[in-house]
């Protein structure tokens, strides 16, 4: 199915020198994009009080269609009570190559974790 709509780009799907955006240089790719529906990311809130969680992606021509496709594809088995959709191109992802400098420094800083506090039983969803 995906092949019909051109290349699918996941977050962090960095190609050589593309910087996360699909290359549009070649004639063929431009044609493909014209014929394709953009990709949307879907977030579902499963119940009141919980946050929206990323559940997957889909193709749709516009936001309205994306919302309905999300409803049909991702909430058929009572998975949700609220849907967010956002066009994938508006999501900026961190570059996996930067993982070392971004995340490793936090490794040895245990004092930043709130594990030294006792959490009262009444606090839910932490």
């Amino acid at each position: 199915m995906i092949g019909e709509y051109g290349t699918k780009y996941y977050y962090g799907d960095y190609g050589e020198g593309k910087g996360g955006t699909p290359a549009t240089s070649s004639q063929q790719q431009t044609q493909e994009e014209m014929n394709s529906w953009p990709l949307w990311e879907v977030f579902i809130r499963s119940k009141q009080g919980l946050d929206h969680k990323h559940v997957g992606s889909l193709h749709a021509a516009d936001a309205q269609m994306a919302m309905e496709n999300a409803r049909d594809v991702y909430t058929r088995r009572n998975e949700g009570i609220s849907i967010w959709v956002v066009e994938s191109k508006y999501i900026h992802a961190s570059n996996p190559d930067d993982a070392g400098s971004l995340y490793d420094p936090a490794n040895d800083k245990a004092y930043r974790h709130p594990t030294f506090y006792n959490l009262p039983d009444e606090v839910k969803h932490m």
Partner: peptide, 11 residues
Amino acid sequence: PALEQDIALSN
């Protein structure tokens, strides 16, 4: 015509 619409109509 598209996976998503296939599912919509089957629903």
